[in-house]
Design a protein around this nucleic acid. Structure first.
Lengths: 157, 157
DNA sequence: GCAAAAATCATCCTAAAGTATGAAGCCCGT
DNA sequence: ACGGGCTTCATACTTTAGGATGATTTTTGC
């Protein structure tokens, strides 16, 4: 309590002590040397200068340097790597067969019909048939539309 | 010249004038009222306080308030939904022209070449040319590959 | 002003995608 | 047993996409 009071107001206390000491010194000099009338102005000037310096010092101590905090927002994208869950409701709504979904996924991956056929060990004709059925169920006209819609409905990642 | 000198050192000049005035005042009081012995301490105290205040004022005027800037980086997690920002680095890497990017975006939206042409008020031939250039730059063979790659590289949403 | 890049357009041709139609085999529910 | 859906495959045809080549105009950067 008392320590904290001292700590908080140590500058003001120091100021008071200086003032008291100065007054004591002047009183002492007044008694010892009767030269007040002679150098009165000198003393006043010294006092002024000393306490101006004290004031400056106090000002610098009391005024804390302002701290301006600038918050820079750094955007971090949350990756959905590997955490895709198909929208089962939409899947059921569309009524795609497993094979049709497989073809759709490979379409979205950028494979040509012939490549898809090879991947699934069936003929090109089979892929064309599945595509046709797929477009019908999804009410689209071409593969890019199918892929776009499938991603939008979260049927494929 | 003289004006600039005055302007530069106006605080110091003011300080000097105050000091002179104070000395004059005290001298005048000393002559009129012989009460120096009686209230000497009071005067000294007053002088001290006045010039301390002057000092503080001077300090505040002469020293510019220091402002320390602290930069705090705050990570803001952004869900990929809706707030898409293109990957400029990858875009620059690929060197797509603005028109090529436009065509890519409309491809990804499921439009046919003829539809894209209509949308951009150009001919079908122009779209085919842009597509060709686009596939070349992206090192892909067909639109589905272009779209898949563009999404993967976060060039399009 | 000049060169290069971008944008636009064309022609000719090939490849791939998409449509229509049909058929056969398998599986499951009634 | 039968019907419906799924899977597979075929043929013939049309439409769209993609490639190659070339030209002109506009824009951009030095």
């Amino acid at each position: 309590m008392a320590a904290s009071f001292l700590s908080k107001h140590k500058h003001i206390i120091l100021y008071g002590v200086c003032l008291a000491l100065l007054l004591f010194l002047l009183k002492w000099l007044e008694l010892r040397l009767i030269i007040i009338n002679h150098a009165f102005e000198v003393y006043i000037g010294a006092i002024a200068v000393i306490f101006t310096a004290l004031g400056i010092w106090l000002a610098l101590k009391l005024t804390k340097p302002k701290v301006r905090t600038v918050i820079v927002e750094k955007e971090v994208y949350i990756q959905h790597e590997g955490e895709f869950t198909p929208n089962e409701r939409e899947l059921q709504q569309l009524g795609l067969s497993n094979r049709e979904l497989e073809v759709l996924q490979l379409m979205a991956a950028g494979l040509s019909n012939q490549e898809i056929a090879g991947r699934l060990f069936v003929s090109l004709n089979t892929i064309k048939t599945h595509s046709s059925r797929l477009f019908e169920k999804m009410d689209v006209k071409r593969r890019t539309q199918a892929v776009e819609k499938a991603k939008r409905l979260r049927i494929i990642p």
